[in-house]
């Protein structure tokens, strides 16, 4: 019969709470006798651990790596010495991350939003639409959204921002500086992995100025803000644009955005060509 570790894992999975399962998948040499194939740690985001890999130092290092994997939502196999030493390979630990879906927050309940919600759902995001105008921010207009919120972007970000991490994405689609600027400034204060803002090159330039005037750091803006939003795949319709945006979200998460694939912000010409 299953025991405490499975009970902890099962409870977290059924409760949609984040949890990491670290399992020894290879043992040799000096680690044998101390650590066994199948030895396990169940790790919660607050660092609480259940079980052992067979050595307290190995547990400590594997927990650190498990929490880093949880942050990025990745599955990895790590190799260690018998006591968790780096650059050794007597023990392999498979780190399996169970995290609730990453979040996609879309500011602006505009035409393009519905398509972005749909593509975001296909990719497995938990999708929120936020717009301060209650007439536009309705569940009827965005039936697939997990959450539709009529609230100012900065207020929403103050509430939700601290929960965001590198897997989460924020798209600002309002093209209206009065909404865009607070949404972007609010997102810059979070750890969200992706921040993009829609608009023509002219809108982009005006918005950039407003952001600087509002106290945004230019280096941070250059590093984090994907504006104009999306990969340059010639998208035109809301659906095509949603694909271009989601492709860029993926590219940023996978570290491909700089160079390997081309983003609109790396170019200079018209966004819609030909």
């Amino acid at each position: 019969m299953s025991g405490e570790l499975y009970r902890e894992l099962r409870a977290a999975l059924l409760g949609d709470e984040p949890v990491v399962l670290a399992t020894v998948t290879y043992v040799e040499g000096a680690a044998e006798g101390r650590t066994a194939l199948g030895a396990k740690l169940v790790i919660r985001p607050d660092g609480r651990c259940f079980g052992t890999l067979g050595d307290p130092e190995l547990d400590r290092i594997a927990t650190r790596d498990a929490l880093a994997a949880l942050d990025r939502g990745l599955f990895v196999t790590r190799h260690y010495g018998p006591h968790g030493e780096a650059r050794r390979a007597e023990v392999a630990v498979f780190i399996e991350v169970f995290a609730p879906p990453a979040r996609l927050i879309v500011f602006g309940a505009v035409d393009f939003t519905r398509a972005l919600v749909e593509v975001g759902k296909v990719l497995g995001f938990a999708v929120t639409v936020c717009d301060p105008r209650p007439v536009f921010a309705t569940k009827t207009r965005f039936p697939l959204a997990d959450e539709v919120v009529a609230e100012w972007p900065d207020r929403y970000m103050d509430r939700v921002g601290p929960e965001l991490g590198p897997r989460d994405a924020v798209c600002v689609l309002t093209h209206d500086t009065k909404f865009d600027v607070p949404a972007i400034l609010g997102t810059l204060r979070t750890r969200a992995g992706y921040l993009g803002a829609m608009g023509s090159r002219r809108t982009h330039e005006r918005r950039w100025q407003r952001l600087l005037e509002a106290g945004a750091d230019e280096v941070e803006l250059s590093e984090r803000l994907m504006s104009p939003i999306g990969l340059d795949i010639g998208a035109r319709t809301p659906e095509e644009t949603a694909v271009a945006i989601c492709a860029e979200i993926i590219a940023v998460r996978t570290g491909r955005a700089a160079g390997v694939v081309t983003s609109l912000r790396s170019g200079a010409g018209a966004i819609h060509r030909g």
Binding site: S2, G3, L5, G38, F94
Partner: peptide, 10 residues
């Protein structure tokens, strides 16, 4: 493909 196969006794 590499698989870990184990009894659920943990």
């Amino acid at each position: 493909v590499h698989l870990l196969v184990e009894p659920l006794d943990w």
